[in-house]
Nucleic acid binder design. Structure first.
Lengths: 196, 196
DNA sequence: TTCTCCATGTAAGTAGTTACATGATTGG
DNA sequence: CCAATCATGTAACTACTTACATGGAGAA
């Protein structure tokens, strides 16, 4: 399971050839998909992968700088008048680095951090009505999330016809597992109602 | 105690009545469920909620100290000979604080951070065989996770008969959504195989 | 004019981890 | 006696966020 990793103790980003961090690859990936500026990258993340990955603006700009230093993206000034702006395009080396990372079989931890489920776990401490309320709240949250995702689906389906099949996959993944959570909630809500 | 100065913004935990952090409530919850020592709390987390919440040992001991200061748990020395040990029990005030938190209708962000899905999102950049490998890896990961969870299920079902129904719910939640992810992966793997 | 969007930069702070240090007890 | 487990404490670090600062451009 856990990889032995390399010989040394490589502090991340310690030197020029150190492994890029996951957020840096995310930025690289977004540039590859056509996001030009830091601002656009932030928007692209919010519109597409925010469901399973977030990144703050404060991370994006330093990442772009690093990627440019390594020549994985090429940056150019695109200021209009006095309004500062810098656009980026992926390089050959950048494409190689991205696909190498995508193909690499390293551990992919599934990191979920959900207060909702934590609360449910402890919910035996609650009075039945209160527990039912909590259950309903968790169900609603997933219903809303699934509904939001379904709204974006047409866009993703269009993209599929233009050769981008995987964004639709990740979107359907989100829909599927929120639907699954809703089902489990409903099952328990029924059980619970009967028990009363 | 701590300065802060009444004027400024309330940094978390700045004074005695500041809101507890989520990890502190998790520790409190585990004490309520019968985990006695810091060590046992860590184990309980690993055995029960690690799929949607983790906590490091280094966080637990300071949390216990804080909870004791606030009289939400009562600590007593339980050293055996020279081996230091401190056990904790929840107080009335602690139980109230816990149920108040559980019942509170505050936002419950669903925080997922998954490199696997990120890689899939970008997978159109890969050659078809490579993309299929990635898809299979993500599928396997969920299959393994679901299998592990099913192994723990009998335990949770026993607990259910003893009045703890909710741990089973959260466990079934985990099974359900990993099963859902597996299904989506399989659907796309078939589609993909046909397209070749 | 004023609001919203475009666009970047950065200081300060929060939340959390890893890794190390210490040492007792139990079971084979 | 040796390995595994029990048990706590903490310094150093990483990763990341929030909040603030700055200002142009376009639209109403």
């Amino acid at each position: 399971m856990l990889t032995g990793m390399a010989t040394s103790s490589p502090t991340r980003q310690a030197h020029a050839n150190a492994e890029l961090s996951a957020p840096a690859y995310v930025v690289l990936g977004m540039v590859q998909l056509g996001a030009n500026s830091g601002y656009e990258i932030k928007q692209a993340v919010e519109q597409s992968i925010r469901f399973f990955w977030t990144i703050s603006q404060a991370q994006i700009y330093p990442s772009l700088e690093l990627l440019e230093q390594r020549r994985l993206v090429r940056g150019r000034d695109a200021s209009r008048g006095r309004r500062q702006r810098r656009t980026y395009a992926i390089t050959r080396a950048g494409e190689r680095a991205l696909t190498e990372w995508l193909g690499r079989a390293d551990p992919m931890p599934f990191e979920l951090r959900d207060i909702g489920l934590v609360k449910l776990f402890f919910a035996d401490a609650l009075a039945p009505e209160e527990a039912l309320k909590l259950l309903a709240a968790v169900r609603q949250r997933s219903q809303e999330r699934a509904a939001t995702l379904r709204q974006i689906a047409p866009e993703a389906r269009e993209a599929e016809h233009e050769g981008s099949a995987f964004p639709l996959l990740t979107l359907e993944m989100g829909v599927a597992f929120h639907d699954a959570m809703v089902e489990v909630c409903e099952r328990f809500e029924r059980r619970f109602a009967q028990a009363q």
